[in-house]
Amino acid sequence: MLAVLLIVWFALPLVPLALWAFADRWSFPSAIPTVWGVDGLDAAIAAGGPAASGRSFLLGLTVALIATPIGALAARGLVAGWAPLPKILPVLLFAPVAIPPFAAVLGTNVLLLRAHVPPMLGLVVVLVAAAVPYTTFMLRTAYAAHDVGFEEEARTLGASAGQVLWRVHLPLMAPALARAAFLAFLVGWSDYLVTLIVGGGQFVTLPMITASLAAGIGNDSVVAVLSLTAVLPPLILLVLLARTGSHRRP
């Protein structure tokens, strides 16, 4: 019963979005679109939706590929007790989430510009900093539950450090790493503020074209198509994650 309620709670906001996406015309006070069609889809393609989605995907992927290993190292260090400043480090790692993003991004941007950091590099660095708290805290829990006994056993049996990492450690941690990477991916995939301010308009992503079109009147159907495009990939990834996660769990 609770599951059904939850699904309704999450799906309900998507219903008008799905209707608007295929409404060429929806005049008040009709309860459903008055003319169905794919004008919204055409407009989304004309507005550069496919290329922008590709860029967002690339950004999400890059952030995930960098923030996940960093998070794993930090989590491992915190759990094993070899990380420096064990009291302060978690606070520092969590700071990007705690500080209001607008203030943090504006301040950071002046610094990055002054240091002549290329906008694309700055964009990735700031988004990775924003994603590391999520990956660290997700993986910290996983490492706390991780039994190093398996790895010690493998070493005793003569496996090299590299073999232990690839054949024992990573397979055991894969579900947790995938979940952490998913969170980091979302940070890049859905970002608007950092892409605009730090990216300096060089990298036009899906949230940027969606937000700019949403600022005008009469764009409901194209905005609905773009918003659904933004919701679907994470949803698909989430389903895949849930399935592989349950298969691989030892």
């Binding site: 507005a47 002054r114 301010i197 308009g201 036009v204 700019s212 949403a214």
Partner: peptide, 22 residues
């Protein structure tokens, strides 16, 4: 073309760059 929500976003970008000595 760089699509923005508000023209102020462009002005803010320019002012930030000038502030940073760029």
């Amino acid at each position: 073309r760089v699509p923005i929500v508000d023209t102020k976003d462009a002005l803010n970008r320019v002012l930030t760059e000038l502030q940073a000595g760029r």
